[in-house]
């Protein structure tokens, strides 16, 4: 299971990576904005994408839409971990095909629940 963690704040990337490690998911790579994330996704065999929304350059929602629009990536599960909590934004993410949405600040349990749920759906 290879995971790409995208956030413009390196502290948040470290937090998410460490939490994923706790869940037994230690094969992670990092990107600091949507554009570099998209390049990495196209080049590497990633199984899961965890992304922030608010980033300079290409934002997380733009990344999500680009992923869904790309034939080779369209089925990639995407979890958004973001401080964006406007209802219209959550609706937009859902419509763009997000698989899970976690608002910051979050707990380790919340992150685990959402990831478990996504994996359940993938295998089920």
């Amino acid at each position: 299971m290879k995971i790409l963690v995208v956030d413009d704040f390196s502290t948040m990337r470290r937090i998410v990576k460490n939490l994923l490690k706790e869940l037994g998911l230690s094969n992670t790579e990092e990107a600091e904005d949507g554009a570099s994330a998209l390049t990495m996704l196209k080049g590497g065999e990633f199984d899961f994408l965890v992304t922030d929304w608010n980033m300079p350059g290409m934002s997380g929602i733009e990344l999500l839409k680009a992923v869904r629009a790309d034939d080779s990536l369209s089925h990639l599960p995407v979890l958004m971990v973001t401080a964006e909590s406007k209802r219209e934004q959550i609706v937009e993410a859902a419509q763009a095909g997000v698989n899970g949405y976690v608002v910051k600040p979050f707990t380790a349990i919340t992150l685990k629940e959402k990831i478990d749920k996504i994996f359940e759906r993938m295998t089920g």
């Binding site: 956030d7 704040f9 502290t11 937090i15 939490l19 706790e22 979050f106």
Partner: peptide
């Protein structure tokens, strides 16, 4: 240690 880890999330939120 996990509690300490999560408490560092403030840096992202205050940074924004």
């Amino acid at each position: 240690l996990n509690e300490v880890l999560l408490a560092q999330g403030f840096q992202d939120l205050t940074g924004q």
